[in-house]
Amino acid sequence: MGMGARIYSSEDVGSFGAYGAQNVLLLIGPTLSMLTVNITQVKMMQCLKSENMGLLPARFRLPTYLTLNVVLLVIQLIGTVIYAMTQNIALVESASKLLTATYVCQMVFWIFTLVENVFWSIRFGRHSASNQSMMPHWKLYNQLFGLAVSIVALGRNLVRLTQLGMGPTGFLSVNEWPSYAFDFYQLAVILLGWGVFYLPGVCKEIQFKQVHEESQSHEC
């Protein structure tokens, strides 16, 4: 949708609504993808019965991941709407500072999720040989988290921070194609990897088998 609005905006440069829409839609794509990544990370730990092997307490992990992602997304949307829909210099500067803060916070938060994933991987690999049989290729699937965090948290957010640091007259702002290209190819790589291996579906299948086996044991 963001790329479609971008194409429409390039054909109709006078359409202020299309310009604002492509800014907002291109912004939320990578953020929503990372929300999926974070939730899947929690689900993978749950389906392998290893929720207590991470850095955060098991009962706080999903609410923390959801809350921080949603709060940062909402603040980012507010900043983007202000940045795209006004020409007031003071408001643009305030929106730029707000966006910079959210990108930095997102980067720190997503790097933390990667650190927790590494910590969990070490503990799970050492002490949960029986649970590993539920997902024999868990190490391969686990690399999807590192791929997503490195591309979005580090690559994409650094590009956006560089763009904001250059200001409205900087190269990345005046020549908009680099930011769109970065967002598009980065998101495409993540979606391709997750589409090929589809870890959410693997986790759902494992949880379904666990429920089925538990129901059969109760019947016996």
Rank of each mutant, 00 (worst) to 15 (best):
M3C: 12
R6I: 09
Y8L: 12
E11W: 06
G17D: 03
A18W: 09
I28Y: 04
P30L: 09
K43E: 15
M44C: 12
M45N: 06
L48N: 10
L56F: 10
P57I: 05
R59G: 04
F60E: 07
T64F: 11
V70A: 07
L73C: 05
L77G: 02
G79E: 03
T80A: 08
I82C: 05
I82G: 01
M85T: 11
T86F: 00
S96W: 03
L99A: 03
L99Q: 08
T100M: 13
A101T: 09
T102Q: 08
Q106G: 11
V108N: 04
T113N: 10
N117C: 08
H127P: 00
W138A: 07
K139L: 09
Y141F: 12
V149W: 01
V149P: 05
I151R: 03
I151T: 06
L154G: 03
G155Y: 03
L158Q: 03
V159H: 00
L161I: 08
L164E: 02
P168H: 01
P168E: 02
T169E: 04
L172K: 06
S173Q: 05
P178W: 06
F182S: 13
Q186S: 15
V189G: 07
L192W: 14
W194M: 13
G195V: 10
V202M: 11
V202C: 08
C203A: 15
C203V: 11
I206F: 10
Q207M: 14
Q207V: 09
F208P: 02
E213Y: 11
Q216W: 09
